[in-house]
Design a protein around this nucleic acid. Sequence first.
DNA 1: TGTTTTGTTAAGAAAATATTTTACGATTTT
DNA 2: AAAATCGTAAAATATTTTCTTAACAAAACA
Lengths: 195, 195
Amino acid sequence: MAEFLDEDAKQSIDNAKDLVVDSLAETMDLYGVTRSAGTLYGTMYFEGDMTLDEMRDQLGMSKPSMSTGVKKLQDFNVVKKTFRKGQRKHTYVAERDFFRFFANFFSYKWEREVDMNLEAIRTAQNQLADIIASENLSAEVIQEAQETYDILEQSKPYYYWLQRLAAMVKSGEIFDIIPFYPMNEEEDYGTGEQR
Amino acid sequence: MAEFLDEDAKQSIDNAKDLVVDSLAETMDLYGVTRSAGTLYGTMYFEGDMTLDEMRDQLGMSKPSMSTGVKKLQDFNVVKKTFRKGQRKHTYVAERDFFRFFANFFSYKWEREVDMNLEAIRTAQNQLADIIASENLSAEVIQEAQETYDILEQSKPYYYWLQRLAAMVKSGEIFDIIPFYPMNEEEDYGTGEQR
DNA sequence: TGTTTTGTTAAGAAAATATTTTACGATTTT
DNA sequence: AAAATCGTAAAATATTTTCTTAACAAAACA
C-alpha cells in the first residue's frame, strides 16, 4: 500500500514539474523560441546534466530533434556542454540561474538587433546620400530622400542606447544598478560581480 | 529625361526603405513576431497613418491579413488607432519612437512572463507542499518533493526582479538610470519624464 | 587498424501556421 | 429606411516549419 502512495506522489511531483516546464516553454515561445526547445530547456532545468539519449527518453522524441534543440539553446548561451567522468556520450547542462539566463539571452538578441539594423541603416543612408547629392533631380524627390535619411539618422541614438544596455546586461553591471532585491537606504547589495 | 532620372531615384528611395523594413522585420522575428507583422510595422513606420486598404495596397496582401496583423501589433502596444478628419475608414499609426517601442514591447512581454510563471510556480508548490506534509510516504519521495519545491522557491527573486525591471521600463524610469546618451560627470540628462 | 558507438546531415512525412476567399454583422451615408 | 462600405470571423487553401526515419561521418575504443 505504501508503494502505491509513493507512486501517486511521484506522479504528482512529475505533474508539478511539467506545469512549470510548460510555463517556461510558453515563456520562451513568447520570445520566439520554439515550444519544443523551450520544453527541452525546462526539462534540463530540473534534471541537470543530460545526454541526448536521456533527453530523448524523457521527452519521447527523436535524437536528431534533441541535437538540433540543444544546438539552438547553445546559440543564445543558455545551454553548455559539460563533461561527465568517463562518459563517452556528450552531456549538456542548462543555465539554472535565471538572472544569467536573462543576461545571456537578451544581450545576445539585442546585440543582433543593433548590428543588423545599423548595417541596414548604413547601406540605406549611403544610397539616399547619393540621391541627395545628385544634380538633375526634382526638388520633390530630393526632399523625400532627405526626409527618409533624417528618419534613419534619428533612430541611431536608440541603437547606441541598446548597445550600452546590452553591454551592461551582459557584464552583469545592470544588477548593480537594479539590484536583485529592492534597495533600502541602509543596505546596498551591489557587488560588481555577477552572481 | 529628367522624369526618367526621377523615377530611378524614387525606386532607389523605395529600395532603401525596403532594406530597413526587412531589417526591422527580421528584428521582430528575433523576438517571436511573425515576419509579416514585422513588415507591416516597418511599412507603417515610414508611411505614418494608414488605413487597412492602404496597407493592403502597399504590401499586396489581403485585407484580413492586415486586420489581424494590426491587431497583433496593437496587442503589444506598438500600433494605435488614430483619427483622421472626416475619414470613414479607421487609421492606424505605428510607434515611431524606438525607445517607446522598446518600453511597450518588453514591458508587455516581461509582465506576461512574470505572471505566467509565478502562477505556475504557485500551483506547483501547493501540490508539492501536500506531498511534503503527507504521512505514509517514503523519505526518498518526500525529499524529492522538497528539492523541487526549493528549486522553485529559489527562482522567485528573479521574477520579482523582472517585475521591477518591467515597471521601470514601462514608466520610462529606466531612461533616467541609463540615459539616452552616455553620461559625463558634468552633464545629467535624466529628467524623470518619458521622451 | 578495424569495430562500435555517437552526433549530425539529408530527405521525406506530418503538423502547425499563415494567408486568402467567402460571408456576415455593424456602421455610415444618402 | 435602404444602400453601401467597412472590419472581422469562419472555412478552405497554401505555405512554412517541425519532426522523424534513414544514411553518413566522426570519434572512441579494443
